[in-house]
Design a protein around this nucleic acid. Sequence first.
DNA 1: ATTTGACCCAAAAACAATACGGGTCAGATA
DNA 2: TATCTGACCCGTATTGTTTTTGGGTCAAAT
Lengths: 196, 196
Amino acid sequence: MTDSNTRSLIVDSARMHFSRYGFHKTTMDEIAKHIHKAKGVLYYYFKSKEELFNEVVKQELGFVKTELDKIVAGNEDSLTIIKKYFLTRLKLMSTAVNYHETLKADFFEKYHFVKDARDDFAEFESVRLNRIFKKGTEEGFIEIKNIESTVNAIMMLVRSIELPLYLQNKYTEYENIIDELVSMIINSLRSNRNNP
Amino acid sequence: MTDSNTRSLIVDSARMHFSRYGFHKTTMDEIAKHIHKAKGVLYYYFKSKEELFNEVVKQELGFVKTELDKIVAGNEDSLTIIKKYFLTRLKLMSTAVNYHETLKADFFEKYHFVKDARDDFAEFESVRLNRIFKKGTEEGFIEIKNIESTVNAIMMLVRSIELPLYLQNKYTEYENIIDELVSMIINSLRSNRNNP
DNA sequence: ATTTGACCCAAAAACAATACGGGTCAGATA
DNA sequence: TATCTGACCCGTATTGTTTTTGGGTCAAAT
């Protein structure tokens, strides 16, 4: 941890405020006041409000990544891992409220400055899914023609359902449907040789 | 056809204008002027601008319904019908630009007045999917535990991908991914007894 | 049964004045 | 040298006011 203590105080304060009031309704002054500092110091650690927000989103997604990697590293069979992966991914992501704001932004405004954090997560997910699918194929649990394109399709699907789920707050309403959906994904991947 | 000629002229003019400028940027006067009538006459046939817009959306969805019913009525095997159904549904829907506006509206404003037309389509789709899935199950092409909940999950999925597809104009970009996705759906439904 | 066009009025657009807030920086602190 | 401050700048958001627009009505005409 090369970061100073102040830096993480700033990020924590920023996350709190952005979560409650959103990007636009949060002022740099508020974030600074909350940790009893002058707002000038925020610009010592971050070159802009946008960069600070990006850092907050990065942390949110970082947490999700950590949790997902625990699942991926587990020693259950591939299909169980995949099922847990998606259920957890969708559930944990529902708590990443600043990330949600960037999702919404895709429609009206352009939060170009947050593209980094999101691309990074997409890359993470692509690597993990390709890896599990490959492993599952080798072990005979999964049987698909083209891993790469299947991963693409599933990632597109998951990103798509994020919108109604998080922006229209339908997570609770759809919870059982999500279960069904994840089962369908598993079912479409499952090899005929290895039916548990 | 009990409708007068004027009525359909109005709807046509309305569809043109709403398509080009959207609901808010289209004025009742423009719609009337375009068919060389006074705007008062619009209120002889429709009780409000909202009702007129609803009629336009109803027509758009009506066209899609007609085309889909042709597919459903075909005598191909269930899996082929299902595949064609979804590919056509997603493609045709991409031309229903006034329907797209109601999708976008879900996020900010509330086009409550158009709920009818959309609920009607959802009902249509639910009935058709349940019917094909039932037929497919009976014929042994499909093997699923619960038809009802599978239909719900798939309908939720399809409505979800409409958002990126139509509101962010990613239809062309995602066209091949859609293909993959529909194949996955088919695969998850397919019975092990009847692999073509 | 249809259509017109003048009319009403709530809501939107246009405009002006003001306040706010992101970002800078010279200097203080330690 | 690294960290922090608070006054300052200035584009933009906000607020308040006026004007225009456009959905909807209706008595009269066709």
